[in-house]
Design a protein around this nucleic acid. Structure first.
Lengths: 190, 190
DNA sequence: AATCTAATTAGTTATTTATCGAATTAGAGG
DNA sequence: CCTCTAATTCGATAAATAACTAATTAGATT
């Protein structure tokens, strides 16, 4: 789910009256006047809230004579409720271990600059893997792009580039760089 | 989770900047200046957002020298994300069948008033069960409270009260009413 | 003590929004 | 055509809030 859809879903739930509406509709379908009565608000307020809930895809309605019955879209609610988890997960290639980050972070300044490449092979590998966050898979990168992005971390981009290739984090062909999938990375040393 | 906690959780996620912060922190802990830099906002804005996220229990912080590193409380996020599902579920004792509701609803006006108690025993039982939504288990109720709440449905609260007792939906002792758990209810007739 | 940096507070502004009363629209039924 | 009811729209108001600048606090280092 894209950011703005995700945010407007949570906006829909960021009001006590709307949450109570959903709880009522989970019991049974209700029409506007009944909701207004049970919640102690006026009909225009219900209209206001229902349009937000409808926009968020959480309720649907069925007309019956002059009356409009709203019902909860429970499967949509379930799906959207967990979307935030997928969203933060999708963006986090470092999820495997926060201990790893505890080691890696000492080689970066608070501004995020790399102080120096670790001498220890294991730590060096971790730092290189960390740098790969700049190059998500599924895309290819020119050498110029690689240089620009590595420059943010350290002056000596040539060494960084070479190390990334050596450990098979990336693959180079005719000046085009391509991130390897984790299966092709070199093993984490000792 | 109670309503206001639930709402303030969703308020915390109802802003694109805060969702982006969570996504960044899912990668690795970061301090305020780094967040400000990556998001293109000023430090006071970060302070503002972090206090909301902290209040919602989604981030924690660790001081190190002069710098404060924030990290995501992922398990809290997971727990709270699904809380809305439990909330709407908990309030819906009618979930077992919407066919049941199709029968029951004919005895209520669109405003939610009970037209009359059904003569058929099975339908009468269903209507009484439906009325029990007013009296969640885990609490006790005075007769006055019972009367007030039943009054919304029908004038003749005495009959309703008596029927609820007869069918063992509630238990009365010394003028205090207590809802029975479903195991103690009388069997649904027919 | 003086200084540097990160974070916070205070105060301001512009935007959003929850709610209401009054007026209007949309159907249904006489 | 008239009337009734449910729902919506319109306009107004009050409250919440996201963002900034400027000033201040809190620790750490010199």
């Amino acid at each position: 789910m894209q950011l703005d859809r995700l945010v407007s879903f949570h906006k829909a739930l960021a009001d006590p009256t709307r949450v109570r509406i959903l709880a009522l509709l989970a019991r049974s379908p209700l029409h506007g006047q009944a909701l207004a009565g049970k919640l102690g608000v006026k009909p225009p307020t219900i209209t206001h809230h229902m349009s937000k809930l409808r926009e968020a895809g959480l309720v649907k309605e069925k007309r019956e004579k002059n009356t409009i019955y709203f019902h909860l879209e429970k499967t949509a609610l379930q799906r959207k409720a967990v979307a935030i988890l997928e969203y933060v997960e999708r963006e986090s290639p470092m999820k495997e271990s926060s201990q790893e980050w505890e080691i890696v972070r000492h080689f970066f300044t608070p501004q995020g600059q790399l102080k120096h490449l670790p001498a220890q092979r294991k730590k060096r590998w971790m730092v290189l893997k960390y740098l790969m966050r700049e190059f998500p898979p599924g895309e290819t990168y020119t050498e110029q792009t690689i240089n620009e992005r590595l420059k943010k971390y350290h002056e000596d981009v040539a060494t960084l580039r070479r190390e990334l290739i050596i450990h098979h984090f990336m693959y180079r062909e005719k000046g085009i760089y391509q991130p390897n999938p984790p299966e092709l990375w070199s093993e984490m040393p000792g």
